[in-house]
Design a protein around this nucleic acid. Structure first.
Lengths: 352, 352
DNA sequence: GTGAAAGCGCTAACAG
DNA sequence: CTGTTAGCGCTTTCAC
């Protein structure tokens, strides 16, 4: 009944039964190495003493395996759960862990986590690093650990570290081309937080040049299509990828005169917010304004959002798979495909 | 540059510098216990050897602390992320961990996880158990561990184990009373998965009697209000708490003749789906049908959903707080408040 | 089948 | 300030 919160050790059980520690260990880990009767006696004695199996930490130390995968998140953990795409990713990683009988250790590494102790104290067999800014201290800390590491999304070019991602640049070029093809020439570009230092009014070219993460890639993709064409792109920094932030930014963006005819968003989360704002303002989509996202999260389909699909949960699964099968030679880069998904939120530019 | 994936130990560093292991240990853990110069020398030698600080597992074993909190989820991890209320809870727990510099270990314990090894192998300082069915094997496994445990939501009455939850029965009575007060007498009750064995057509009374988890509590709350009144309640089992499942169930429920005038849902996730279905069917809310939820997740406000608010993230924070300050005498039960939030999704029953 | 010996890598008294 | 001594609790050759 009472688990007797007191520590009983394998040695105590061995002593009680009058066998060696090895034998007790075998009773738990190699049932075939001892007679069934002896095993039963040992287990009974263990129950008696309140011993419920080997201590996981001691076992880990001895076996050099933790049965856990570490996930280092670029955002603060609490914020990570607000971003639907991050949640999708988490789901993929969680699934992979679950399938292989391991736990998932979420390691806080948000911008406000100043020290990297949690990374150093993480008892894991490997790290998945998700969407960290370049030169992040937590990434540096992870790299000092001897376990295998896989980076997802960002930063892209860390020497010797495996990478999983999509071609964000090409993906964003696809959707930009789609929007341009519909005749839009005044575009509001809603972006998540820009890395680096910013003047008040970021413009597309500087975002494309200066952001070293996923945003920079996507901005370059947009730039590739916009090129020298006579297109006005206004950039709005939402600080993070969440619907309410997108809604707020869209409100500002759509107040401009003349009004943009398209709101192109860094992510679906932002776009979903923009859609809400359009509805609030009484603007018809796509007649009055077109809206696009990126990711194709589940809610995007319901909202009829034109977007670019990327296989987010699969990123998680692939990352864990790489962890499990350490590279033999050189760095591995897994580039997953993207696909333009046209739905009802985009249409021809109004010709006023 | 090259972290030299090879294991270097504290002892190796000590040998290299020509000091004892203690001194090297101190260099990392008690900088004030040795001269700055010696410390610098040690750190330099360590860097040289590719030693980047004490091994976390060995340290854990010695210090009897893992710097991590374990979270055991009733649903499979991958499904947990689909339930917005579960995500909110996760957020609360994550936040608490983050604030105290610990990591969060997600331990898979879904119904399909047949063995409890992950629980046994979890290197944590304590467990938060979220919404498990009664008599769950994983809960049993957790209880054999010597670390402190806090159960959230379900099961409610485990001897000696601290508990955090809300009064689901009273909460659900509140919203039922609201609906009844609006004159509704034909009600569809959308529920998440019912625990236990079921005939094809569960009815309110049997759910109230037989479900031992949160659902049972809420069903009892509904029953308390419905009482002997002349109210028809049809029960629809959605199997889990997700919008699409709610949408599907609502489609069936609203096909009944005569049509229910209110769809009362176990959760906001389900209600959000029901709302979608109502829109798809061209039914006006609340004129043609009223819809209610439970939880008050962020999306509920945006959707104008009448619901009962419960402080979900706070549940997570409180649970971790209990873990940190183990009970001195007896079991602690934290009951958080609920509040009826009336929005536009409910209105008077149509009088056909 | 079973046991003895040898650590895994680290920290915490306690002396000097 | 620094070193010595003792483990934390477990698994694993390798003999018997």
């Amino acid at each position: 009944m009472d688990p007797s919160r007191r520590r009983a050790t394998l040695a105590a059980v061995a002593a009680a039964v009058g066998v060696s520690r090895t034998t007790v260990s075998n009773a738990y880990n190699r049932p075939d190495q001892l007679s069934a009767t002896l095993r039963k006696r040992i287990l009974a004695a263990a129950a008696e003493l309140g011993y419920h199996g080997p201590d996981p930490v001691a076992r880990s130390l001895r076996m050099r395996t933790a049965s856990a995968v570490g996930l280092v998140f670029g955002d603060s953990l609490s914020r990570a759960f607000v971003d639907p795409n991050a949640v999708e990713f988490l789901q993929g990683v969680a699934r992979a862990c679950e399938d292989t009988g391991r736990s998932l250790l979420l390691v806080p590494a948000g911008p406000e986590a100043t020290n990297t102790e949690t990374v150093q104290r993480a008892a894991v067999d490997g790290f998945v690093v998700y969407s960290l800014p370049p030169n992040d201290r937590h990434l540096a800390a992870v790299r000092t650990r001897p376990q295998p590491i896989v980076i997802v999304d960002s930063p892209r070019d860390v020497p010797d570290v495996d990478f999983v991602g999509v071609d964000d640049r090409v993906g964003f070029a696809k959707i930009t081309r789609h929007v341009l093809g519909l005749g839009h020439r005044r575009i509001a570009f809603l972006v998540s937080s820009v890395t680096g230092v910013w003047s008040d009014a970021p413009d597309l070219v500087s975002v494309a040049e200066r952001d070293a993460g996923v945003l920079g890639e996507r901005a370059r993709g947009m730039q590739d299509e916009v090129g020298a064409a006579d297109v006005q792109v206004s950039v709005w920094d939402c600080r993070a990828s969440a619907p309410d932030l997108g809604a707020a930014a869209a409100r500002e963006a759509l107040a401009a005169e003349p009004r943009p005819t398209a709101v192109v968003c860094f992510s679906d989360a932002l776009a979903l917010g923009a859609l809400q704002t359009a509805a609030d303002l009484g603007l018809r989509v796509p007649e009055d304004v077109s809206v696009t996202g990126f990711d194709d999260v589940p809610a995007a389909a319901a909202a009829g959002l034109t977007t670019v699909r990327q296989p987010t949960p699969e990123k998680g699964r692939r990352a864990v798979a790489l962890l499990d099968k350490p590279a033999v030679d050189g760095r591995r880069v897994v580039q997953l495909p993207t696909k333009l998904i046209v739905r009802g939120s985009t249409g021809p530019a109004g010709d006023e």
